[in-house]
Write a protein that binds this DNA or RNA. Structure first.
Lengths: 114, 114
DNA sequence: TGATAGCATTTACATATATCGATATTTCTA
DNA sequence: TAGAAATATCGATATATGTAAATGCTATCA
């Protein structure tokens, strides 16, 4: 399960780094931010994120169609986004419902100094 | 030379896409945004960008030291960032001076809906 | 309890990329 | 024009990653 706990969310660690435009990033800050950016550096994941973010919650089974990807591939991408702290999965019965994590998006924008 | 003209800057094409959180991204929008994100998905490039963004302008020769990378590697990364529209290179004499492109950072933040 | 549905994991493979040595190109200077 | 300096490009290699088939796991239902 990609049921990432809040303590695992890398976006939290990233939220503390100062904006890019104010001071050079440390090695550790850069590695952490790069990990989150890498989660966003794939067209399928961006579309997946936008599908989740545009609705209150989305089931995994509602993603395979629009994304035109296999079930294992969709599962892989949701896991990557969840580990980056961008979405959160909640299992209810046989379905996993996904929610966007708005704070993570704000943290990225802040890290970019924009 | 990575002297990218304004017409080549992918951030321009990206600036027109609606925020992630409002509507699902189209395939083309996702590909374009992913290309810019990929440029930010590397620790060395993030530190390079922060070095450039934290100063009015930075010479390539001032990057090898802080980044602890070889000259070809630094040249490669500046090219990637320039092609993504995040920085602009201006050649004056034997030196290339790099500037951040603030509009590109704002466009990313807007695309993320944050 | 057996069968089915939804999702996660493993495994394998093709592609992409970060890195650097060697070399080419451009520009300044003597 | 020759030589040096700064940067860009090429070639090679190791690593990372997107993708899906095969398989495992858990919850629901007859």
């Amino acid at each position: 399960m990609p049921q990432t706990k809040a303590s695992d969310v890398t976006a939290d660690a990233m939220a503390c780094c100062a904006p890019l435009t104010e001071a050079p990033l440390s090695e550790a800050e850069a590695v952490e931010l790069a990990r989150v950016m890498a989660a966003l550096a794939d067209p399928v994941r961006l579309r997946l994120l936008s599908l989740v973010a545009s609705a209150p919650e989305v089931c995994s089974c509602e993603l395979e169609g629009p994304l035109a990807k296999s079930q294992p591939t969709v599962s892989h991408h949701t896991k990557v986004l969840a580990e980056a702290g961008l979405i959160t999965g909640e299992r209810r019965g046989r379905w996993t419902w996904w929610h966007v994590n708005p704070e993570a998006l704000v943290a990225i924008a802040r890290a970019l100094g924009a």
